[in-house]
Simulated assay, not measured.
Amino acid sequence: MTSISTLPVPGTQFQVVIIDNFMPGPRKLVDYALTNGKAPHDEALYPGLRMPTPPGYLRYALASINLVFKKLKIADTLCDGEAFFAMVTRPPATLTTMQSIPHFDRPYTHEYAVVHYLCSPVYGGTSIYRYNPTGQIAITEASLNRYQQSLDAELARHPVPPGYINGDTELFTRIVQIPCEFNRAVIYPCALLHSGDICADFKPDLNPYTGRFTVTSFLR
């Protein structure tokens, strides 16, 4: 049975929406990823592999999330987007600087990112962060230059060693943590600084049935 909960993002007007038991037959999605004949591909920023989901996935996600938004009195109505199977495959020591700090997906607070977990809770969930030098949590078009200029200066002075962020650092403070649960969808505005909670000794597992396998969607 589907259940819905929310978490406020401190210091903002935003909230994280959590839908458990998000989709019927979730293991069939993993089966599809292995049998559809399409090859996954590397991404420039994402630390692993991605591949498009079946067309019906996006339709279902949009309809389901719009119903939840209506129940929660969230004014936004979502009508389009993209959805990808995603698997983290890069060892911590191989990450770039930008993969080793929180990121935002797009500088828009009325577009949403969705992480749909198709993996064990052992792989960790998702966290929202505050950028300490400026106090920014959401990076919008109006605040993007301020954030980028400050971040560039801080990284030049204090380079970040490669590795997945999973908690507080000198530059970033974790303000919300959402645990992973199989078939849980976590929904938040694309502008929020966030990162997956991946442990320091993470060892890639390329089997979608046993690795850190998710669907990542961007909805507008």
Rank of each mutant, 00 (worst) to 15 (best):
E170N: 10
I198K: 00
E141V: 14
I101Y: 00
R174H: 05
K71T: 14
A61R: 04
N207R: 08
Y131E: 08
K70F: 09
N145Y: 01
T2D: 01
A75P: 08
L193R: 06
E170Y: 07
L67K: 15
V9A: 07
G11E: 00
T109M: 11
C199E: 15
A75Q: 15
I19N: 00
A86Q: 04
R184L: 06
L155V: 11
S217I: 06
A138V: 11
Y188L: 15
L155R: 01
D42V: 12
G211L: 07
P40A: 11
Y46I: 14
I101T: 07
T109Q: 13
Q13D: 14
T97R: 03
T216M: 06
R50W: 01
S195Y: 04
A153Q: 13
D80W: 05
R157Y: 06
P40T: 11
D152F: 09
Y164N: 04
C190H: 02
S217L: 04
N21A: 09
G37I: 11
Y112W: 07
R59A: 13
G48L: 09
D152K: 12
T97E: 09
V16E: 04
I65Y: 05
P40H: 01
A138Q: 09
L95K: 03
P102A: 09
I178A: 05
L62E: 04
V215M: 03
P40N: 08
F182S: 05
P102W: 02
R130F: 07
L78W: 02
T134K: 10
A142F: 05
P91T: 13
N132R: 15
V160I: 14
H41I: 14
Y147S: 12
N183H: 07
G56S: 12
T35H: 11
Y188V: 14
P40W: 00
K28Q: 14
F202A: 09
N207L: 09
G37F: 02
E154R: 07
S143G: 12
D197I: 08
Q149C: 12
D205C: 15
N36P: 06
V160A: 05
C190K: 09
L72S: 12
S5L: 06
G25E: 08
C180A: 15
K38P: 00
S100N: 02
Y57C: 06
Y123R: 02
S150L: 08
A200E: 15
N132Q: 14
G81A: 08
T97K: 01
M1R: 07
T12E: 02
L95H: 04
R27S: 11
D152I: 10
N145L: 13
L58N: 06
A33K: 00
F202P: 04
H110D: 15
S3F: 01
D76F: 08
L7N: 06
P107Y: 01
V30I: 15
